[in-house]
């Protein structure tokens, strides 16, 4: 069971209050009317799915119901940080180049 720190509620809550929503920081095509099928397909479906550090979107579904980001290791499952929407992660794969 994860204990996840919700950056909005300001406290650690149990995993069952949250839902994982996949890769974070996906940028919607800036010019939708002139985007190609490749760009749309890429945005909608293609994912990094890394074995290691993963920045992902979670929602505090049974709490404040707000979305926020989590940096988590996908092998150890260790949660390295949580941060509000609109902010950038402090922990990235480049600075943590060590195998799990």
């Amino acid at each position: 069971m994860f204990l996840i720190y919700c950056p909005y509620c300001g406290e650690e809550r149990e995993e069952s209050e949250f839902h994982a929503k996949g890769q974070a920081h996906l940028a919607r095509p800036a010019d939708p009317d002139n985007s190609s099928d490749e760009e749309w397909g890429h945005y909608l479906f293609f994912r990094e799915n890394p074995r290691g550090i993963h920045h992902e979107l979670w929602v505090h579904a049974a709490g404040c119901r707000k979305f926020f980001n989590v940096t988590r290791h996908t092998v150890s499952y260790e949660i390295l940080e949580t941060y509000p929407i609109g902010e950038q992660p402090r922990v990235t794969a480049n600075q943590m180049e060590k195998p799990a």
Partner: peptide, 13 residues
Amino acid sequence: DGYNGYGQRGSYP
């Protein structure tokens, strides 16, 4: 389990 993961184990919930 709803989150991405490569650890070959599942969660208790």
